[in-house]
């Protein structure tokens, strides 16, 4: 559904992505993993059209979308869900959700999706008249995911939905991401929380220095020694213990 080939981009003269290739098939949850400053968010910004693509191609549903205007990309059904801090804090929860539905003109459909979001995240319904700035970190993350859903997307790009949240909240949010995926929305989730992301996703890419370093089925990566060592909190002590026993 989303196919990125040889993607090169950056900010000003600083190149961040150096020929990134990846693919997200329809109906799947794919994870893009990596630490700070490896180019994860840059990749999302390029796909969403917020920054210019220098080289390479981005295809969505068989159509080239690289260097199209962001609103044009949203209208094709590809929406990016930013981190929770990017809600509109001075708008109410419900207004935030309505901004998400900006591209749509079918009022009954929008009303239905609003109910769906409230069904997924009941706490948003309780707080729908509150300003988004008064929500907790977890609630505001739910809000931006809900706001993305309001666009009735074919595919969602999620930028670190677990960032700075308590494990229990992360679990709740990931369960809902899974539910959204089962309703037919293809998902690319960008994460630093490698362990959680590998449980959620069926396939994963690991990015370093603007290139894909490792890719594979999530289950395989979970048990891959290299991945364990570098990303799953394994230490040299762990592996030496295994070596000695």
């Amino acid at each position: 559904m989303l196919k990125v080939t040889g993607l090169e981009t950056g900010y000003g003269r600083v190149q961040i992505l150096r020929g990134l290739d990846m693919e997200v098939p329809q109906g799947r949850i794919v994870a893009l993993l990596g630490g700070n400053g490896t180019g994860k968010s840059t990749m999302l910004r390029a796909v969403s059209g917020l920054i210019r693509v220098w080289n390479g191609q981005i295809e969505f549903n068989g159509e080239r979308i690289d260097n199209k205007a962001p609103d044009q990309i949203v209208r094709r059904g590809l929406i990016q869900v930013t981190q929770g801090k990017d809600s509109y804090p001075s708008m109410t929860v419900e207004e935030n959700l309505k901004v998400g539905a900006f591209t749509r003109s079918d009022k009954p459909g929008v009303a239905r999706d609003l109910e769906r979001v409230y069904d997924y995240f009941p706490v948003l319904k309780e707080r729908r008249r509150q300003l988004a700035g008064t929500l907790s970190g977890g609630e505001v993350q739910m809000l931006v995911i809900g706001r993305g859903l309001m666009a009735a997307p074919k595919m969602m790009l999620l930028d670190e939905p677990s960032a700075a949240l308590a494990p229990k909240v992360v679990l709740d949010i990931f369960a809902n991401i899974n539910r959204i995926a089962r309703s037919g929305v293809t998902i690319l989730v960008v994460e630093q929380n490698v362990r959680m992301a590998l449980i959620l996703a069926s396939y994963a890419y690991i990015i370093r220095d603007g290139r894909i370093l490792i890719e594979g089925d999530a289950d395989d990566l979970m048990h891959d020694e290299n991945v364990k060592m570098s990303f799953l909190g394994g230490t040299v002590a762990d592996s030496s213990r295994e070596y000695m026993s």
């Binding site: 969403s48 059209g49 917020l50 205007a69 962001p70 609103d71 949203v74 209208r75 929406i79 990016q80 930013t82 990017d86 509109y88 804090p89 001075s90 708008m91 207004e95 309505k98 901004v99 998400g100 900006f102 591209t103 706001r147 666009a151």
Partner: peptide
Amino acid sequence: TKIGLAVRAVAANKDIAFLMGINV
């Protein structure tokens, strides 16, 4: 109004408004 909401969205954060499909 919907357009008014979009205007406020643009005023608050242009990048996010763009990502919501608003013609900034």
